[in-house]
Amino acid sequence: MSGGVDSSAAAHLLCDAGHEVIGVFMRHGEESSEVCRTDAPQLPVVQRAGHKQGCCTASDAADARRVADRLGIAFYALNLQRDFRRIVDYFVDDYTRGRTPNPCVQCNNWIKFGRLFDYADGVEADFVATGHYAQLAADPDGGVPHLLRGIDSSKDQSYVLYGIRRDRLRRMLLPVGGYTKKRIRELAGEIGLSVADKKDSQEICFVTSGHHSDFVRARRGQDAPSTAGAFVDMEGEVVGQHSGYEAFTVGQRKGLGIALGEPHFVVRIEPETRNVVLGPRPALLRRGLVADDANWLIEPPAVGQTISCSVQIRYNSPPKPARMTIEDASASSFRVEFEQPEEGVAPGQAAVVYDGPRVLGGGWIDCSIS
């Protein structure tokens, strides 16, 4: 329970369905001056002046506690800061490598549907549930449930769930996936939840202020090698200077701080030269990509086998028709060829493979195919 409307409504729906519900809030930010005690009558999370933290602030913890009290369910705050450092390190390392990380995917993989299963086992819980907008459907042959898109296409979050271990689908519940966001807010209001109109978090939860590049530089420290370099055009001519390539991602247009007379986009980031390559929009088009470190929610196709599918390469982009081919015997690498060239194929982002609404699996984009 993050203190937002989605997880709060999810808890209500679970209670309504007859489950014994335990609310869990994840603390994974900076250490507070007061230790969390799960046996305290009020949640003792202290927010220091000027401190904010996306979806996991002290006020969010208080909101979650109030919802739990309103629903009459048990509520615990877990300190997962040590586990979360792994996500922060991954975030910083990927930007330093000239990639564009997705910490929300890794949080689901490692913590929400990783460490929380350990906690669930510890309290003998049957399921782990969240407020993600995605659905689970029974397999007609009695196998592992299918992970599907949520019915609200504008809020669908199946993309960030592709990396969950397949065997854990049997113990997952996604109560809000069959509702629209509008209906979830209405439902929360009807039962008197104080978070019914609370705004959605739009921030990276551990980037507490400023731009993500400021966070990366601070985390790397003053003695780290410089990432400052040059903007270059498609011919390699220097057209400007930048203070660090970690501030940019493939497909970016805004915030370049350079005027070239016509719109230019980040086409490529070269950490070895520290160059950020700019070009016109057509220069972003790619025929395909290669992804690695794949996770499959189906029995993966055999090496060399090609299947027709759709592939989504960003959280906010729609899936596009494509053909996917497994590249190695372990099915950890795959190649995607789009039916039509696509823009903004960014190394470090997830490429998620769908069959209609069903998530088949996915992997991390290693490189694009021109």
Results as ranks from 00 to 15, higher is better:
Val232His: 00
Ser2Asn: 12
Gln157Phe: 05
Met1Phe: 10
Arg171Ala: 10
Glu235Met: 11
Met172Asp: 03
Ser158Gly: 14
Ser368Met: 03
Ile365Glu: 00
Tyr119Leu: 10
Pro300Ser: 03
Arg115Ser: 10
Ser153Gln: 13
Leu116Lys: 08
Leu169Thr: 14
Lys155Arg: 15
Asp89Trp: 06
Phe75Leu: 04
Arg185Met: 09
Val267Asp: 03
Arg335Phe: 08
Leu14Glu: 06
Ala17Asn: 02
Cys205Arg: 02
His212Thr: 09
Asp94Trp: 13
Ala322Asn: 04
Arg99Cys: 10
Ile111Arg: 07
Gly98Val: 04
Ala322Asp: 02
Ala329Leu: 05
Gly361Trp: 13
Arg286Trp: 00
Lys112Ile: 04
Arg274Leu: 14
Glu237Cys: 10
Glu327His: 06
Ser226His: 00
His242Lys: 08
Glu203Ala: 15
Thr130Asp: 14
Pro175Ser: 01
Lys199Leu: 11
Glu34Cys: 15
Gly279Asp: 02
Val359Trp: 05
Leu360Tyr: 06
His51Arg: 10
Arg99Met: 11
Tyr162Glu: 01
Val160Trp: 10
Ser368Pro: 00
Gly221Gln: 03
Phe91Ser: 10
Tyr90Leu: 11
Ile258Lys: 01
Gly210Cys: 06
Lys199Val: 06
Gly255Asn: 07
Thr208His: 14
Arg286Cys: 08
His264Asn: 08
Leu136Cys: 09
Cys55Arg: 05
Ser308Gln: 07
Val290Ile: 15
Val359Tyr: 02
Gly142Phe: 05
Asp328Thr: 04
Glu34Pro: 05
Lys254Gly: 14
Thr325Met: 07
Asp6Asn: 01
Arg183Trp: 14
Gly177Ala: 04
Asp156Phe: 05
Glu339Val: 12
